Simulated assay, not measured.
Amino acid sequence: METVIAIENLSKRYKDVQAVEALTLELKKGEIYGFIGLNGSGKTTTIRMMLGMIKPTEGSCSLFGRKVALKNTKMWERVGYLVETPYAYPELTVEENLRLFQRLRQIKDPEAVGRIIDQLKLTSYARRKAKHLSLGNAQRLGIAKAMLHQPDILILDEPVNGLDPAGIVEVRRLLRNLASNKGVSIFLSSHLLSEVALIADKIGIIHQGRLVEEFRTDELNSLIERKLLVGTRDNKAAAEVLLAQGVTCHLNAKGLIEIEEKELLERPDRVSEKLVETGFPPTYINVEVESLESYFMRSIQGEGEG
């Protein structure tokens, strides 16, 4: 599959601040890459370097096999982007903003603006001035501008920021459709792993400017921690019985018996049977699954913070 974005050893330093350090990643045609990090982790700096808005201290970024550079202007005809806040002319309406952008992009298709207004559910706001839009609808306008010329690459910085839950679902479906059915490659940043996991094919976690972890979304299930929590009328005695039978367990901070053996996580009924047989029938038993946000925090804390 064709590689459309290739970042190699990309770094950016501002005097004493290392904003991005030795970042390497790639994105294939039709893939969605979720770039996850806290505010200030280096997400937007990376995106600005990808778009040629700022020059890297070291390393390089290539789009469609061509290095991002001022002389390679032709590549931008195939790239759409939304960086930080969605910019619009405040005194112009939604439709006027898009018509202006259509002229700037030299888009000849007369249906382009109407089609994107419909796609982004902006029809009822088409004649509203941009300055009177809610944060969510301003964000929709920003995404509409990024998509207006039907690019092959979309680079979106926090694209669902300000959207209500229904709007988030709509944008998620729209982006997934573009990738799956149109072959558009999408690089999007966010601070919410739980949201990105619903749409991305691949996820990279950036912290303090470094890519600390990268995985395919279908691998995430195996990375998340699970534990079996058991309660009885005498947890200390019940835990001693389980230990004597070779079950690795301990009492957690809440006084419950905690078991992390994979085999028993998949068959908690076996633990229940052992306890019933030894006179400690469980009063509580549950497989607790780590949340995606907890996994994200564990990943970055493993890098020496927290």
Rank of each mutant, 00 (worst) to 15 (best):
E2T: 14
T3G: 11
I5V: 14
E8R: 08
T24C: 00
L25A: 06
L27S: 09
L27R: 06
K29F: 10
G34P: 10
G37M: 09
S41D: 04
M50T: 13
E58G: 11
L63Q: 09
A69H: 08
A69K: 14
K74Q: 13
G80M: 12
V83R: 04
Y87A: 15
E95L: 11
E96W: 07
E96M: 10
L104G: 11
E111W: 14
A112K: 07
V113R: 03
Y125W: 07
G142H: 07
K145N: 08
P151G: 07
P151D: 01
D152H: 05
I155K: 02
P159H: 08
P159R: 01
N161F: 10
G167Y: 01
I168W: 06
I168K: 11
V169A: 08
R176N: 10
R176S: 07
N177T: 11
L178M: 08
G183V: 11
S185M: 09
S185H: 03
I186V: 08
L188S: 06
H191G: 00
A197C: 01
D201L: 01
K202A: 11
K202L: 11
H207L: 07
L211T: 03
V212P: 02
R216V: 13
R216Y: 15
D218G: 11
E225Q: 14
R226K: 06
R226G: 09
K227A: 12
V230L: 02
V230I: 09
G231R: 12
G231M: 08
T232F: 08
D234Q: 09
A237I: 09
A238S: 07
G246I: 06
N252R: 01
K254S: 13
K254Q: 14
E261M: 12
R267Q: 13
D269E: 14
S272N: 14
K274T: 02
K274M: 10
L275G: 09
E277D: 13
P281C: 02
E288A: 05
E288S: 09
V289I: 03
L292D: 00
Y295A: 00
R298G: 10
G304I: 09
G306K: 03
